[in-house]
Simulated assay, not measured.
Amino acid sequence: MAQTDSQSSTSFPDIVELNVGGQVYVTRLQTLTAVPNSLLWTKFGQGSPGDLPTDSKGRFFVDRDGFLFRYILDYLRDSELSLPEFFKERRRLQKEADFFRLPGLSGRLAAAGGGGGSCAEDGGGEPEEAEPGSPVTTTAAASTSSSSSSSSERTLRSPGADSGYITVGYRGSYTIGRDIQADAKFRRVARITVCGKISLAKEVFGDTLNESRDPDRPPDKYTSRYYLKYNFLEQAFDRLAAAGFRMVACSSTGTCSYGGNDPAGDDRLWTSYTEYVFSR
């Protein structure tokens, strides 16, 4: 009990680690408290560490959508919002903005998300009150024209969000012993490749790209030689989904070879290769 009292009396560190729905974020306390009267401003600016739940590693835990919190954090940093092109989670992100008590962000999402019906439903057509420190903007009302809505849509998109295709390839191999499935010896090769335009690959995967096989290649060129520093395909899929890509096709092939002269008596080596095509 004494330890809890001591913890609650201390202040928050300047660098704060958060666990939001299983996703870990590291940011500054100044960022979390950037918008007065928001939920995070109340918890981290007016409360104390002992009042907040933590995970097993001592990080402050927030039971919300960990994927969408990245956009909440970006808005707190810059008072601006940049979403990937063809972003499909606008309505859910607006709910997150409402939960974190960010009316300026919620108003922008409502205005850009579908014209008059959405605005009248969420704000009754009333202008949104600007948050302190936010740039002065005019929020669309219920009678906003389609051209204004399209303009708002464009302001939410990332400036470098070009359309195109990215192909992710996965190669794996394993051996199977003599007619006994239990003797299977898996030798998975964590080899995940990226094919596509250099600029798109770098936009999506950033520093998780291993560029050692195509160094200093111009961004307007194409590559089939980049490897990803991932062991799981799902990690690559998450990055692509966050950047607005969706899977449009996939294909797979496999080969079998033998190590000796007697195919019936030697281990069989299976090699598989699968490609997933994503489009934005």
Rank of each mutant, 00 (worst) to 15 (best):
A2H: 12
S8E: 12
S8W: 09
S11T: 11
F12C: 08
V16T: 09
E17M: 14
N19D: 15
N19V: 06
G21Y: 01
Q23V: 13
V24F: 07
Y25W: 04
T27Y: 04
L32E: 03
T33Y: 01
A34V: 05
A34I: 12
V35W: 01
N37P: 01
S38Y: 04
S38T: 04
L39N: 14
T42E: 11
G45S: 03
Q46N: 07
Q46T: 08
G47D: 05
D51W: 01
D51I: 14
T54K: 07
D55V: 11
K57R: 14
K57E: 15
G58Q: 09
R59H: 05
R59F: 10
V62E: 05
R64Y: 00
R64V: 00
F67A: 06
Y71S: 10
D78Q: 10
L83T: 00
P84G: 12
P84C: 08
E85Y: 02
R90H: 07
R92G: 01
K95H: 08
E96I: 03
R101D: 07
L102Q: 04
S106H: 04
R108K: 11
G113Q: 00
G114E: 06
G115L: 01
G115W: 00
G116Q: 03
G117V: 14
G117P: 15
S118A: 11
S118E: 12
C119R: 14
A120N: 07
G125C: 11
G125L: 01
E129A: 12
E129V: 13
A130K: 15
T138H: 11
A140K: 14
A141Q: 15
S148V: 12
S152A: 14
S152P: 11
A161S: 10
A161Y: 05
G164S: 00
V168W: 01
G169R: 07
G169Q: 05
G169H: 04
Y170I: 10
G172Y: 09
Y174C: 10
I176M: 15
I176N: 08
D179F: 12
R191F: 09
I192L: 15
K197C: 09
L200D: 01
E203P: 02
E203A: 11
T208H: 05
N210I: 13
R213V: 11
P215D: 05
P215W: 13
P218W: 00
P219Y: 09
T223R: 02
R225L: 11
Y227W: 13
Y227P: 08
L228Y: 00
L228V: 00
Y230E: 14
F232K: 12
E234A: 12
F237C: 08
L240H: 13
A241D: 15
A241S: 12
G244S: 05
F245H: 06
R246D: 06
M247I: 01
M247H: 00
A249Y: 04
A249D: 07
C250G: 15
S252C: 14
T253H: 15
T253C: 12
T253E: 10
G254I: 00
T255H: 10
G260I: 07
P263Q: 04
A264Y: 05
A264P: 02
A264W: 07
D266A: 14
D266M: 08
D266I: 06
D267L: 06
R268A: 09
S272R: 14
Y273R: 15
E275C: 09
F278H: 12
R280F: 03
R280D: 00
